[in-house]
Design a protein around this nucleic acid. Structure first.
Length: 254
DNA sequence: AAGAGAGACAACCGCTGTAGA
DNA sequence: GTCTACAGCGGTTGTCTCTCT
């Protein structure tokens, strides 16, 4: 199928770094007409830039709420954890970091964090395996600190049965769900669910928009839902400790 | 001082998804 | 159902800056 977006008129389009003047034209346009309609900008303003280029420039650099530089250690930690959960889904990761863009996080990961995580991973392997080189081609996604793309989660039956009777389920959404809330699941555990379903939109959580999770509807009725206070507790646990007690539970491989 | 190489990051490219005609 | 326009995504490339020799 022919797609206009992929090859705009090459001759009429400026390329490379944006000038201050071009930025100002774009900012004025957005203030007047709002975001969107990127393809009309060159026609309406005379700006010699493609719609995609304008959109990228606005979203990544000109938008007022963009934070620039100095990614904090908290943010760094969050990126690492989200990346281990989501893989290279930069827009999803960026969605949990207010003011940060997918491009910025992607660049930060590729130039800095990836090496850091790999070094840490190697250190861990060396500690666990001694000098033996870990030529680990079969990565266990439940235990590896390397990024693993994974679209589904699984709660093992054993973990559920153990935890249901002994733990306060509100402490951690992944440790268990109360027995009364298994309607519809019954003997269905381990239950699959889409991890992207668990990531609540940031406007639904009021603690800096950081990531939190919610038990999906099919885990039970609405009393399985998560309020903000619970989100915050979970987020603190998740941020300050190992949110997923991987060493305590023998997860099956996906 | 100058050239090479590495690192950082802005921008582009190719593709998919989706809404609307 | 098909086509088109456009938004959005992730991978890749280009370019600038810094450091090292």
């Amino acid at each position: 199928m022919k797609r206009k977006g992929g090859h705009e008129n090459q001759d009429a389009v400026n390329r490379g770094a944006w000038s201050a003047e071009e930025d100002q034209i774009l900012v004025n346009y957005v203030h007047l007409h709002g975001e969107g309609k990127w393809g009309q900008i060159s026609r309406r303003t005379g700006l010699k830039r493609g719609g995609k280029s304008c959109r990228l420039r606005w979203l990544n650099y000109l938008k007022p709420d963009i934070k620039r530089g100095n990614i904090s250690s908290d943010e760094e930690d969050l990126i690492i954890r989200l990346h281990s959960l989501l893989g290279n889904r930069w827009s999803l990761i960026a969605g949990r970091l207010p003011g940060r863009t997918d491009n910025e996080i992607k660049n930060y990961w590729n130039t800095y964090l990836r090496k850091k995580v790999e070094e840490k991973h190697n250190d861990n392997n060396n500690m666990e395996l001694g000098i033996e080189s870990p030529q680990c081609t079969d990565i266990d996604p439940t235990k590896s600190s390397q990024p693993v793309r994974c679209n589904e989660g699984m709660i093992p039956t054993v973990a559920l049965n153990d935890s249901v009777n002994t733990k306060d389920w509100t402490e951690n959404p992944f440790e268990s769900t109360p027995p009364d809330h298994h309607d519809g699941c019954e003997e269905g555990f381990p239950t699959h669910f889409d991890l992207s379903d668990l990531l609540m939109p940031q406007e639904d959580c009021h603690f800096n928009g950081y990531a939190c999770v919610e038990l999906p509807q099919h885990f039970g009725d609405e009393s399985c839902g998560v309020n903000d206070a619970m989100c915050e507790t979970w987020y603190d646990n998740w941020k300050n400790e190992d949110y997923f007690p991987l060493d305590d539970v023998d997860f099956p491989l996906f």
